[in-house]
Design a binder for these strands. Structure first.
Lengths: 146, 146
DNA sequence: TTAACTGCAAACATTTTGCAACCGT
DNA sequence: ACGGTTGCAAAATGTTTGCAGTTAA
C-alpha cells in the first residue's frame, strides 16, 4: 500500500523511485528531528546503496513541496521533520539534545503585534528556547547526549 | 585614546594588536549586523594585509569574552554585533535585509512560562521575525537589497 | 623574553552540482 | 521513449586549524 507521504509526493508530481520510498519511510518513522547525516544512516540501513546527494536532493524537493520542513538549531547542520498542520516552535534540551514542540497562541498574537509596531507583516518566524531541565529534589530521570 | 571596546578587550586579558584594533574599530562603527565577509571588507579598507583567519579568530575570542554576539539568520553565514546591556530579538526585513531590534517584556515572561510547563529553565532563546513592510497607500519608501 | 598572536595554506563540514547512466511512467 | 532521477566525484561555501614566523607586554 501507499503511505501518506508517498501520496503527497505523487500529488506534488514527484517520481516515486525506490530511493524516495526509502527516504519517505525513514522520515515518516522518525519521531525526532534528524539531521541529513542521521537520515542517511537510517536510509543506508534499508538501502545500502542510496547516495548522500540523492538524500539531499530529495530533502530539497520535499521541502519545496512543503512536505517536510528543515530547521537550523545553530549546530552547523539542518534537522528535518514532516510538516505538520499546525505550525509549532521548538524547545531544545541543552543536556540531552531532545527537541520538544510547542505552540502558544499568545506568542502568535505577540509577534504580529510587535511586527506591526515596526510597520511589518510577519511572513514567518523562528522561536527557539534553549533550556535545561529544572533541578528538582525528585531527581527527574534524564537521557544524556551520547 | 582607548575606545570602549579596546578597554573591554584589555579587561578580558586580550593582547591588543593592530589587527584587533582595526576589528574593534569596524565593529564599533557598524550600525548594522555585518557578516564576517562584510567585516573583512571593512577591515581591509583600513588595513589591507589583515587576514581572514585573524578576523575569524578574533570574532571567536570576542564572542567567548561576551564582547560581541553572533547571530545566524539562516542565510548560511553568521552576522555579528556588539553585545548590548539589554538582550533583544530581531526582526529581519525580507525585502531590504535590514535588521530591526526589539525587546518585549511579554515575550520574556511568555518564554519562561512555556519552558516551565515542560519542566525547563530557559538558558537562552532565539526569536526572529521575518517580515515584509506593510503595504500602505502612502507608499512607504523602502530600500531594496543590492 | 615569551606567550599570545598572525598569515598562509591546507583542512573541515555541510551541502550543491556536472555529467553520464538509469529507470518510472 | 524520454524526462526526471541517480551515483559519483568534484566543487562551493563558510569557518577552523597547523605551523612557522612575528609582536605586544
Amino acid at each position: 500500500m501507499e503511505t501518506q507521504l508517498e501520496q503527497k509526493c505523487r500529488e506534488a508530481g514527484l517520481k516515486l523511485t525506490g530511493q524516495r520510498r526509502t527516504i519517505a519511510k525513514v522520515l515518516t518513522e522518525a519521531t525526532d528531528h534528524p539531521s541529513a547525516n542521521e537520515l542517511f544512516k537510517r536510509c543506508t540501513e534499508i538501502d545500502p546503496k542510496i547516495s548522500l546527494s540523492t538524500l539531499y536532493r530529495t530533502l530539497r524537493v520535499l521541502e519545496e513541496a512543503r512536505i517536510i520542513q528543515s530547521h537550523d538549531f545553530g549546530e552547523g547542520f539542518a534537522r528535518f521533520e514532516l510538516s505538520t498542520k499546525d505550525p509549532h516552535d521548538h524547545l531544545i534540551d541543552l543536556v540531552s539534545g531532545d527537541v520538544h514542540e510547542f505552540n502558544h497562541p499568545d506568542l502568535e498574537r505577540l509577534k504580529q503585534f510587535i511586527a506591526k509596531e515596526f510597520g511589518y507583516d510577519v511572513v514567518r518566524h523562528r522561536v527557539e528556547l534553549y533550556a535545561i531541565p529544572i533541578k528538582s529534589s525528585q531527581g527527574k530521570r534524564r537521557r544524556v547526549r551520547s
